[in-house]
Amino acid sequence: MRSIVLWSLFVLTTMYPLGCYGADALKLRYLGVILGDIKEVGLKKPEGVACDDQGQIVIADTENGRLVRYTLQDNALKGGGEIKVPEVVFPVRVQLSSKGSIFVLDGQQRKLAQLTPEGTFVKYVTPVGVNPPNVVPKSFKLDSRDNIYLLDIAGERVLEIDPTGKLLAQFPFPKNYGAMSDLAVTAGGDVLLLDSAKSTLYIAKKDAPQFAPFTKGLQEYLNFATNMLTSSRSADIYLIDQDGGAIVILGPDGLFKGRQLSLGWRNGQLYYPQQMCINKNGDVVIADRGNSRVQLFENLK
């Protein structure tokens, strides 16, 4: 009898924490902060950040009009070199391709620029053959094949183009939307669309031409989400709650799973965060615009 009780206690104590992690999916612990480049020039209102599986972190140092590149290896940051090209004056969103190319959205010029892995300007990525031709990209994402998904707020659509700009598909925004601010592509090829004003996600399933509601209003769980990311491992969806200074986690089914971090100025807190990325170790990097810094978090899951 005693052995049964002890065995039950053992099972409970070992399984309960696992259950907790399963419920929240993402458990963040503050790891460190990036305040500037290698020359100690401070970041100024950074709005974008991108990571890759080689440990590279590229920051859109927005109000300094430049990119800053670091490498995170064994919890140590290296590098900190500046990438500054005259063709990009106000970087707001960054993504890295599978070949290491840097794609950066210029918020002032409203153009998507492609840079080499070394940081040399290659070209502006311009969609070819789209109708109507006026494109205003608000955000963008790359998929595993390096195809580009542009959130075009002027054309009220998502454009899928290949790296040369050739149009592959376009998905019109759903009717009666509020204000679209970001998109994400799932590992399965579905496209998610974030409506900040209505705190709602829409989904265009792979090979489906239309967006359909994916979640109901998430107002209960967040304030004003402006950025979205899908986890390739857990298939969870992460939303940056800009006004609430937090990360909101949804399951692959769009249901609320949890909330991490809080608004503030101290290390580990966020003040109007803008973009996040996750590296192969599961570490989370967040462009903390209001605090003029980039913060790194370890995922305890």
Binding site: Q108, E156, A179
Partner: peptide, 12 residues
């Protein structure tokens, strides 16, 4: 000429 524009102004 400004760096940040209110998105609705750029919408359809």
């Amino acid at each position: 000429g400004k760096k940040r524009m209110h998105s609705p102004l750029l919408s359809k």
